[in-house]
Amino acid sequence: MATNNYYNAEDLAKFGNISDFQKEMGDKFFAWYGEVFKESALSAREKSLIALAVAHAVQCPYCIDAYSSDAFEKGWSEAQMMEAVHVSAAIRGGASLVHGVQMMNKVKKIAM
């Protein structure tokens, strides 16, 4: 990948460096992040699939890279992973469409 881009694949491995500019907050974030992804009421495997879906919702290429690998490593199939992306897309699409009701309300109010 060319280096003169806003997004560089190599930068994913440098995520931890964000603490260089603000150590206390960075350290707290990574401690919390680690805690979030531990086995708990949800399994680490389930959390990985959720993370993959959210990564697509927020369209973060680093997160998609990381959680495509992680979810596949944790045993989710290609079809399951694509369904998770569809869930993400459906919520994003639905979020736009449900605002159509707002549009309809407004139009109905002002129309004769």
Partner: peptide, 17 residues
């Protein structure tokens, strides 16, 4: 063993599955 270019997940969790 992984069917691809990746590392195995947690042995304990995988055994349960």
């Amino acid at each position: 063993n992984p069917a691809g270019a990746f590392l195995p997940p947690s042995q304990v969790s995988l055994e349960k599955e």
